[in-house]
């Protein structure tokens, strides 16, 4: 029973409904809000579903994820091995750039590679960078932000000075520096991009908590004897989830852009791996005297991916933070 009352205390105080448990169906009769049966998350999902652009983005992102997962079945050629068929009578080691054809959907590139195969496999790199980087950012930024915001004092000071330092680093430069000294394997790419973006997440979480920690429902949780960890985990964190989700959904395309640029400069990932950035760089070196499709397609893939993720991000922002999202065309 004590548990129920605690949840009820946290409910009204936190407009962003601190309840993600679906068991909320049984509401105490005392609740009089007309929308009380809908949790924030169900509300958000409904708003998201009504947003056509966001659903389009979601569809495109799902499609890209499927392409990345089932790359071996979709690619039709090996991404890192030259193909040999009737259209490639040239000897090994010679550049072969063809415009798109029925055999090679996006044409061919480099030393007899199929561009479509390389792009399909490249989606694995780009998408994984997006998701893994944000996972690392969450892993570093959220706990540090929680600590800084909740405990204040010297902990806050220390963490904030740390974010100051990392914020002063132009973030592309830090990633570049990182990759050049620790090698350019894909693992370091994740770390390099995450290292340079976590301070934003820490600051976001800290700011959210500063606004929350003096609210009545936290006081009430204190009064019921909840431990600090429980307060942070059960009462504060769920209330900051909305902005965190929005930040992550914008962070993913940002990380993909960064990775593409690092690949374009030639410091990201295995040189043989067909990351989109590297494809763009290859395309730039050759497009002047060859079909420009070798440059256009990789660029287009980056743009489409980023755009789809941004559509989704906009939708999530509007859905999770209705106050801020008035702008999205709906009343």
């Amino acid at each position: 029973m004590a548990k129920v009352s605690k949840e009820r205390i946290s409910g009204p105080g936190s407009s962003r409904g601190g309840n993600i448990l679906p068991s909320k169906g049984k509401k105490p009769a005392a609740e009089t809000f007309p929308r009380a049966t809908n949790s924030l998350w169900r509300d958000a999902w409904r708003r998201l579903r009504r947003n056509k652009l966001a659903m389009l983005g979601l569809l495109a992102v799902s499609g890209l994820v499927l392409i990345a997962i089932f790359a071996p079945w979709i690619a039709r050629y090996q991404p890192d091995q030259p193909f040999y068929d009737s259209s490639s009578p040239k000897p090994y080691n010679e550049q072969n750039f063809q415009p798109p054809s029925a055999a090679h959907w996006m044409g061919t590139t480099g030393q007899n590679y199929d561009l479509w195969a390389r792009i399909v496999y490249g989606s694995r790199i780009s998408l994984s960078v997006g998701f893994v980087v944000q996972a690392i950012v969450l892993f570093i930024g959220v706990p540090l932000g929680l600590l800084a915001g909740y405990f204040g004092g010297w902990i806050d000071n220390l963490i904030m000075r740390l974010t100051d330092i990392f914020r002063a680093f132009p973030y592309l430069l830090l990633a570049l520096l990182f990759l050049s000294s620790f090698g350019s394997s894909i693992l370091w790419v994740y770390v390099a991009i995450a290292i340079s973006t976590w301070p934003l997440m820490a600051r976001l979480v800290r700011g959210q908590i500063l606004g929350l920690k003096n609210k009545e429902f936290i006081e009430a949780a204190h009064a019921t004897g909840a431990s600090t960890f429980r307060i942070l985990w059960k009462h504060i964190l769920p209330n900051t989830l909305g902005p965190i989700i929005v930040a992550v959904s914008y962070g993913i395309p940002e990380a993909i852009i960064t990775e593409a640029f690092l690949g374009f400069i030639g410091v990201s990932g295995d040189p043989a791996a067909p990351s989109w950035g590297r494809l763009i760089s290859e395309g730039r070196d050759a497009f002047q005297s060859n079909p420009p499709t070798i440059l256009i397609f990789p660029c287009l893939m980056v743009v489409i991916t980023v755009m789809a993720l941004n559509f989704l991000g906009d939708g999530l922002r509007d859905a999770l933070d209705p106050r801020q999202g008035q702008g999205s065309g709906k009343k």
């Binding site: 652009l53 395309p253 593409a260 640029f261 980056v302 980023v306 755009m307 941004n310 906009d314």
Partner: peptide, 10 residues
């Protein structure tokens, strides 16, 4: 929204 989605180097 479109401009937001195109990286400057692209």
């Amino acid at each position: 929204l479109i401009g937001f989605s195109i990286p400057s180097f692209v």
